[in-house]
Structure formats: C-alpha cells, structure tokens
Design a protein around this nucleic acid. Structure first.
Lengths: 242, 242
DNA sequence: CTTAAGCGGAAGGACTCTCTCCGGATGGAC
DNA sequence: GTCCATCCGGAGAGAGTCCTTCCGCTTAAG
C-alpha cells in the first residue's frame, strides 16, 4: 500500500484508458473482459462474490485481476462509478416529470428495479463494502433531487404532507428488501408492494389502485423463507454423532 | 438427522428436565445459565452469534455447551420451541380481536416487534439456520390464523379485497427488514412505516392517519447505510491508500 | 530477436466458526 | 470422610472462506 507509483499509474490507465502508457493489446483485452465479468457476477451474486469467481468467469487467472486492479475495492469502484452516474441520471429524469406524483413513482420504481437487476449496486448503496468514497458523493447528488421531488409532490397536494425525505428512502429500502426476499420465487412481485406503498403515500383515495401482477402462492412463499441452504458441499453429514 | 438416539435422549433431558436421570446440580445450573445466555446473545446478535460467545457470556467453557446440546441447532431448537409458542399465542390473540381491522394491525405489530426485539427469532423465521422442523410446524399453525384474520377483514370491508395471505406476510417482511435497517439509528421508526402500510392496506380513506413518531434525520439515515463496519479489531488502518 | 510486460493459478496468510478431546475438579451417595 | 461417575474448561483440530502474493512461463511489440 505504501508504494504509490504503480497505483497511481494503474488508476490513470483505468480511467483515461490510454494517455500515460497504453496497455499491451492483450492486457487491454483482458481488462475489458474482467470488467464485463465483474459486472455480470456482481449483478447476479452481489459484492460477496469472490474475485476468484470473477477471474474464472472472465477466463483469466486471479493474478491478472490483481495486476489491473490493486484490490477488490478498486475493481468495485471502477465498475460502479459509471453505474452510479446512471442512477443519478435516472432519478433526475424521474423527478423532472411534469406530473409530481408520476415523477415520484418513477423514481421509486427505477431505484428498486436497478438494485434488483444488479445486486452489486444494491450492496454498494447499502454500504456492504465499507463506505466507498465514490458513492458518498453520489448520495449527495441524489438526495437533494429526491428531496425536491418530495417537496413538489407535497406542494401539489398528492403526497401526504407528513412524509419526509428519509421516509421516501425507507420505502425504497422496504421494496428492495422484499424484492430480494421474493426474488427467486417471483422477480416481479415487489411491484405489488410498490402499488401498496404508493396507496399509503398518497393524500387520499376512494378505492385501492390495482396491485398489478398476482401474489406469491403459499409454496413460493415457503420457498422464499427457506432459501438459505443451497450449499451443495459437505454438510456436517451423518457421522457427526459422538 | 440420521443419528437419532443421542438427540432423542438429549431432547428428553431438555424438555422433561428430570425424569430420566436428574442432572447433577452444577450441571443443571449451567444448563440454565447457557439457555439464558443464548437467549440474550441470540436476541442481540441473531443466530450468527458463535457458541463461543454464548459460552463466554454464560461463564462456562464451550465444551460444557456441547455436552448439554449436541450441536448448535439443538440449542437453537430448545430455545425457540417455547419462543414460537409465544408467537403463535400472540397472533392468535391478535386475530381474535372483535374488530377485524384492529386484529390485523395488532398481529402485524406484534410479529414485527417480537422479531426486532429478538433477532434470533427473526433468523429462525427467515430460515437462516436451515429449516428447523420445529418451525415448519409453527408456520403451519400461524398461517391459517392470519388467513382467517385477512378473510374476516376483507369480508368486513375494511381490508382491500385484492390482498392475499402472502401479501400480508410480505408486508411483515418489509417491516422487519426496514426495522433492522434503521434499528441502530432509531429502534422505533419502523412504526411510521407500519402506519404507512396500513394506510395502503385499508379499503379507502379520506386523509392519512398520523404516522406516529418522528422520521429519521439525514445523519441517522446515512449511518444506517454505512453500518457494516463496526469491527473493533484490526482495521486496514490508515495506509489503506485510497 | 530481445525483452519487458503480461499471464495463470497454486499457495500463503488471516480470518471464522463448529465441534472434540482430555487432564483435572467435584457433587453426592454411602 | 471417601470415592468415582459426572462434569468442567478451554486449547486446538478441522474445514471453510476469501483476499492477495509470487514466480516460472508466455507473448506482444519495437
């Protein structure tokens, strides 16, 4: 960690991609494959995925990953820096909707959908990797946007006035979590709860708005509860007795 | 699961507590202390707590824990068998309320409150330890109760009719998760979202019902996001570079 | 052709957690 | 008061996990 030279050099390569010292063709090719593999593996399994898995998936050795990115955090940062730009842009679009209510709905839906399609993104947002600086700044961009969206919707009289910014964030947390919970059983069922929450968030309503798709059936729910034992390896097995 | 003898024997000791062969006085004393320690540690840290920690907290050696309970699962089962009875009773009471709506609210609130006060209970319910038989049967008791409560509330016209049993369960999941998320910042703030969800669940309403306590402030929310690095041991320390 | 850059992947820690083992201590029956 | 079955503590074996390094071989490119 003390030797700074290589790190600075590597970082420059990752971002500027050429100026300092253009990577050898095969190295550049591998860099791209590693990023693609990381994007895919992190999206599917979240940040808990090991670098071995990413290397295997990219068809390179683990050493190759480490020559390009000094450590796991650097890889995550390189990947999600761009990704978070998309999140910001997406939220910006949503809250800019001329209809304040539609804007809030869209922001909520996009945020949850993005995090469910990319579990790595969820983990970054939830700080599962220990406070990435790159996200701290993005959160500072997103929150005021949402704040503005919330205020606008309250002023328009469509959003209940006792809702605060952090409530909106908490609603998003609830949706992401229930979506992750039910994901294996039905990756779309969280939209029911989006509608349910929106019905709770609006100022008043005569009748429930339709929930959208079907609910989970009982078997699917049971399965969602018991999904924590896919481990195919050696269990304590039989001869554990004493 | 294959070796039945010892387990059956041990189980008998734990439950009947005397008939077969009364434990020596000190052993019995330790058994009680272990259970008390486990109750406390599991409640605070969830089932991920190690048996070493429980042993230390009980003031005994780990070997002592293992002599009394053949493995971690047995200890968990011994503890939560009784605990789950309380859950069933509590839900039974709630849905028996003469007011169907009040019954549902009470059931939801109790379920969430119990799981937040006892993270081990939450983990058992969410299957974090691999399908305890003892809970499978309890779930079979609870679900029909809730089902009946839901149906009654729909028939009474207070609960929106497109809600199904698993939706109720999912709502409970959302609340437990958001409660766990915000717990360190404010252990009560989930009640705001209980009210919010209830407003979404009811058939119609003129105005929002009050949310109860205050929302999280921004700092508290930030802290809740970044709470995954309380590790007091050797951090990467300063020279982590960037 | 030469050589520095790059490559794979085995191996080196550094953890974690469950569970076992055994010499020594002790409750309680007689 | 004696004696031994029972129990105790806690070190450590064993089995994982994951991040990171190292080194002999390969290869792009001037």
């Amino acid at each position: 960690m003390t030797t700074t030279e290589q790190q600075t050099g590597a970082a420059a390569d990752e971002q500027a991609a050429a100026p300092a010292r253009p990577l050898r063709a095969d190295a550049e090719r591998n860099r791209v494959r590693i990023l693609a593999a990381a994007r895919e593996v992190f999206a599917r399994r979240g940040l808990e995925a090991g670098l071995d898995e990413i290397a295997r998936h990219a068809g390179v050795g683990t050493g190759t990953v480490y020559r390009r990115f000094p450590d796991k955090t650097a890889l995550v940062e390189a990947l999600f820096d761009e990704r978070l730009d998309q999140v910001v842009a997406c939220v910006k679009d949503a809250v800019a909707d001329p209809d304040p209510w539609a804007g809030l709905c869209a922001a909520l839906e996009s945020l949850v959908a993005m995090q469910i399609e990319d579990h790595g993104l969820k983990d970054v947002i939830f700080g599962e990797i220990g406070d990435l600086e790159s996200f701290r700044s993005r959160r500072a961009e997103i929150l005021p946007l949402v704040e503005q969206g919330v205020r606008r919707a309250i002023d328009a009289g469509v959003l209940r006035p006792d809702v605060e910014l952090t409530d909106f964030a908490a609603v998003q947390v609830m949706l992401v979590q229930v979506a992750a919970f039910a994901e294996a059983a039905d990756p779309q069922v969280w939209r029911r709860y989006l509608h349910l929450l929106l019905d709770g968030l609006c100022t008043r309503r005569e009748a429930p708005t339709p929930l959208g798709g079907p609910a989970l059936d009982l078997d699917a729910f049971e399965a969602a509860c018991g999904r924590h034992l896919p481990a195919p390896t050696t269990q304590p097995s039989a001869p554990t007795g004493r």
